[in-house]
Nucleic acid binder design. Structure first.
Length: 921
RNA sequence: AGGCUCGUAGCUCAGGGGUAGAGCACUACAUUGACACUGUAGGGGUCAGCGGUUCAAAUCCGCUCGAGCCUACCA
């Protein structure tokens, strides 16, 4: 059988996904064993507007590795796919479309607009699903969900109503983060703090009487009063008394309704009971005292704007100040401000106010000041804190069980340290503003009566029933609430809403709680914590037993990928260039415990080379084993490896060790370790040694019972290797596995190799390592002296004991061939003749007659170097052994091992010295 | 301002109480019958610095310096 010399991913990647999907391999029902353990994962639903980025590629690859591994290991596996309706993001996509058509959503009206979004979703929303198939993801498409589908919408209503009935959801007027760009309230998590260079303006407010014309000399007086250590915000001048406040947002002064200072700030006792007069407006402001104000910052006086600052809002509540909203929802000055400012933007008002204060002599100082300003994550506009009527979810009480569940280990974070992020947030949690003034999303299940009473219910019918139950008129007109819910309100139900909740479905019974959640650290607050809360609240059980936090993918230079930096790598281009399997393997192999993962070309190249190695190792077998392939019968080790030779016992032992270690590594989410183990086994053990040792028989022109046996064994090991590789590299392994003798219809369903203790063979591993060491040493000598590979050498070996002699004897042909020897003589002691180059390996000494072939000075130098290295090691060991404390306190086995190591080194040093002497003979 | 994480070979990173590993890069040699996306051999690190615990520290603890990330209502 002939196959191409180089692996071409495109030739086979396309064909296998439909094969798997059509045969239903990815549904849990493919596993008919009723006693099979269940393994379930719900995918973090990508935004329906989304396309696959590198973060997904990593996140999805790891989930697929787990799903395929557990499926092959015999579990009933469900990996449930789906997408999120992504309220704001999706609404914006469709609004941009409308914008191109020259209309706005308001032109369409709400109903038509929502229809339009659905239409968009149907036609353009499936990008990510297609890309998931390219990646080979073994998700169960028959159970795909969307956060706005009927089932999930019911779950949302159910949860809302129950939480409301329990008093955990409330509606009220509070200060929220208002996005003027999106025209909606947003949650704290959607606010992005950015460092902005601005100014801190120091402004004088007169006490008692208004300022109507320019006051001279205030700035100088302020500067003079604050020379050196002394600081004060109280100025007494001929023009009267002034206090000084500092602000980064002078435009908000239009809404000031008080001035605050710390109760312990004795500098300002004199102003108690007086009033400041707000410049430009003329409003009288009471002085209040509040702990929040720091004595040491600025002047110690703070202007209080209860309607436009969260702190001031709280102070306003505490002290009964007036709430004057001077900035509106479009970020323009409202009618509550003096007429001349009305309609100005925040920015224009700021400019004008600063200028006017300056003209009045009240602007005392302008400092450069860098501070953090909240920006709307989606629209980028500066968030305006506004008082608005919104729906909120009380979090503190709900958070407690979620904290407890991780503390007591019902849910485990991997890596463990990421739980700190989780605790930190939950322990300082604030109520969550869940309403949004958008059109795309889950409607809030609430209705208003003509009297303005709110009825929360699953449907209008129920709302009327609730009215009737309260003995009220249930025939009144009911107006539905027009707000929608924050997207995360539905996402937080994902682990159970997707399985059918609130119905008690079979899926829910079988797959909840899920086995593991694989996600990024950036949504621990947004999503993970909230799912924990809701899972515990409504299912009474954690939603997942493990949370695996995958790394953040960085660009090759270690920078965070971002559109603005232009360093975003498109995973599809990577799959295209290196092959999907190679990209998947590279990502898996790079998934260490670290928080970040820099995706470098060299890793991808290395993985591509690995795919090619797999291809060619199989190619070698296919090219030489037609006779065996024709029969097509599957191979079992019990029959094939009886009796095994040393190389067979060795490779079986290695295979089993790798199976053991790889299963352990995957069970503990040490992906890189599993990948490295399998890589090394396949390349180093199988290709470099086992195939090389088998070659003479495999390539023998004449078939013989022995060559048949060797070929069958090599095919067996190869077939098991492909199974080990399959979870990480599904396409190439399926392609090749199908060409080998096998049982079953797909490697996807073949058993993942488990270790068999009977095949772990430490003796075989030790014995073959002696052979490997001898061959390597002989090659080393050849390289050191620059001897051509064409030159066949004669060698003597003096084994240290009988057992080693037998091993070497049994492997004599292999050693001769792989070390390119003309003859190999096994002796008791090496000939102490001039012209022999000698070397030591574990368990044997070697000598090669090289007279006339090499420079003996060079050989001496080589021996000196070897001696020096070994002497250094010995010195270290002896220092330890001469230390009485070490002998007394160190573990006995460590002491013993140290003695043994020292003895071995002494012996080797002795031998090396003999060698040096022989050179001089 | 607090918190977290990380400083190990030229690069990217594993490891982790008993004097160090991988991939890539590098050097030499080989070569077209599995594979140049190859083979063979090799060079390269006082594990950031300083102190402490210990018989023993790259590994545990503290401090310093450097890098990154997260949280936060300093006007």
């Amino acid at each position: 059988m002939e196959i191409p010399k180089t692996y071409e991913p495109k030739d086979c990647e396309g064909r296998w996904y439909p094969f798997w999907e059509e045969r239903g391999y990815f549904t849990p029902e493919i596993n008919t064993n009723e006693d099979a353990p269940v393994f379930s994962i719900v995918i973090p639903p990508p935004n329906v507007t989304g396309y696959l980025h590198m973060g997904h590629a990593l996140n999805h690859t790891l989930q697929d590795v787990l799903a395929r591994w557990r499926r092959m290991a015999g579990d009933r596996v469900l990996w449930l796919p789906g997408t999120d309706h992504a309220g704001i993001a999706t609404q914006m996509v469709v609004e941009r479309q409308l914008d191109k058509e020259g209309i706005t959503r308001h032109d369409l009206g709400r109903e038509k607009f929502v229809e339009r979004v659905w239409a968009w979703k149907e036609h353009s929303g499936g990008t990510i699903q297609k890309q998931m198939r390219v990646l080979g993801e073994s998700v169960d498409w028959t159970r795909e969900r969307f956060t706005m589908d009927d089932g999930l919408s019911n779950a949302v209503k159910e949860v809302f109503v129950r939480l409301y009935d329990e008093g955990l959801i409330y509606r009220g007027e509070y200060m929220v983060n208002w996005s003027p760009g999106l025209q909606t309230a947003i949650s704290d998590l959607e606010v992005e703090m950015k460092s902005v260079k601005g100014n801190l303006w120091h402004i004088a407010y007169p006490i008692g009487k208004a300022v109507t014309e320019r006051v001279e000399g205030l700035a100088e007086a302020y500067a003079a009063a604050n020379e050196g250590e002394a600081k004060t915000g109280l100025l007494s001048t001929e023009a009267g008394d002034f206090i000084v406040v500092a602000t980064t947002r002078p435009e908000t002064m239009l809404g000031d309704s008080g001035v605050a200072f710390n109760p312990e700030d004795e500098r300002y006792n004199s102003v108690k009971g007086k009033q400041a007069i707000l410049p430009l407006v003329g409003r009288a402001l009471p002085f209040i005292q509040d702990e929040v104000v720091e004595k040491g910052f600025g002047t110690g006086f703070v202007k209080v704007t209860p309607a436009h600052d969260p702190n001031d809002f709280a102070m306003g509540k505490r002290h009964g100040l007036e709430f004057i909203q001077v900035i509106g929802k479009t970020a323009k000055i409202t009618d509550a401000a003096p007429e001349k400012y009305r309609g100005l933007s925040r920015e224009a008002a700021r400019k004008q106010i600063v200028a006017e204060l300056d003209a009045l002599g009240l602007l005392l100082k302008t400092e450069d000041y860098t501070h953090n300003v909240g920006h709307c994550q989606r629209s980028g506009t500066v968030v305006e804190p506004l008082i608005s009527t919104q729906w909120f979810l009380k979090m503190t009480e709900l958070a407690q069980p979620a904290i407890a569940a991780v503390r007591d280990g019902r849910t485990k974070f991997v890596p463990e340290s990421s739980a700190k992020i989780y605790f930190n947030w939950l322990e300082n949690i604030q109520d969550w503003c869940i309403s949004r003034q958008l059109w795309w999303g889950h409607s809030i299940p609430a209705w208003f009566t003509p009297d303005g009473e709110i009825i929360v219910a699953r449907a209008e019918v129920e709302a009327r029933a609730r009215l009737a139950a309260q003995g009220k008129d249930d025939t009144v007109e009911l107006t539905p609430d027009t707000d929608v819910l924050d997207t995360w309100f539905s996402s937080q139900l994902w682990p159970f809403s997707t399985l059918g909740w609130p119905k008690e479905t079979e899926d829910l019974r079988q797959f909840y709680p899920t086995s593991v959640l694989v996600t990024g650290f950036d949504i621990i607050f947004f999503w993970v914590a909230r799912m924990m809360i809701m899972g515990l609240k409504f299912m009474g059980e954690v939603p997942f037993k493990t949370v695996y936090i995958n790394a953040l993918v960085l660009d090759p230079s270690g920078q965070k990928m971002s559109k603005s930096k232009g360093n975003v790598i498109d995973p599809l281009e990577v799959f295209d260039k290196y092959g999907t399997d190679a990209a998947r393997f590279a990502l898996t192999a790079a998934s260490t415990a670290g928080l970040t993962l820099a995706l470098q070309e060299s890793k991808l190249e290395s993985a591509r080379n690995f795919a090619n190695k797999i291809w060619n190792a199989t190619r070698f077998v296919l090219m030489n084993c037609d006779d065996i392939l024709e029969s097509g019968e599957p191979l079992e080790w019990e029959t094939e490896f009886a009796p095994p030779e040393l190389a067979d016992r060795w490779i079986l032992s290695r295979l089993n060790q790798v199976a053991l270690d790889a299963n352990d590594a995957l069970a503990e989410y040490r992906f890189h370790e599993a990948a490295a183990l399998i890589y090394q086994f396949f390349w180093n053990d199988f290709c470099d040694w086992y195939i090389e040792l088998s070659k003479p028989h495999v390539t023998a022109k004449e078939a013989s019972p022995q060559s048949t046996a060797v070929k069958r064994r090599i095919i067996f090991i190869l077939e098991r290797s492909l199974r080990l590789l399959h979870p990480m590299m599904p396409f190439i392994t399926e392609e090749l596995w199908q060409r080998l003798p096998h049982q079953g219809e797909s490697v996807s369903l073949a058993e993942f190799p488990q270790h068999n203790a009977a095949q772990l063979d430490g003796r075989a591993e030790r014995e073959l390592s002696v052979v490997i060491e001898i061959i390597t040493k002989l090659r080393n000598l050849r390289a050191t002296f620059g001897l051509s590979p064409a030159l066949l050498l004669k060698a003597q070996i003096a084994p240290a004991d009988e057992a080693t002699r037998e091993v070497i004897e049994s492997m004599r042909d292999h050693i001769q061939r792989l070390a390119r020897l003309e003859s190999l003589e096994l002796v008791e002691t090496l000939s102490a003749k001039n012209g022999f180059v000698r070397a030591v390996v574990t368990g044997a000494e070697l000598a090669v007659p090289l007279i006339g072939l090499i420079d003996f000075e060079q050989e001496k130098a080589r021996l000196e170097k070897d001696l020096a290295k070994k002497a250094g090691e010995l010195a270290g060991l002896e220092k330890r052994l001469n230390n009485a404390d070490f002998i007394q306190r160190a573990a006995p086995d460590v002491v013993e091992a140290t003695h043994a190591q020292a003895a071995k080194l002494k012996n080797q040093i002795f031998q090396l010295n003999v060698m040096k002497l022989t050179l001089d003979l």
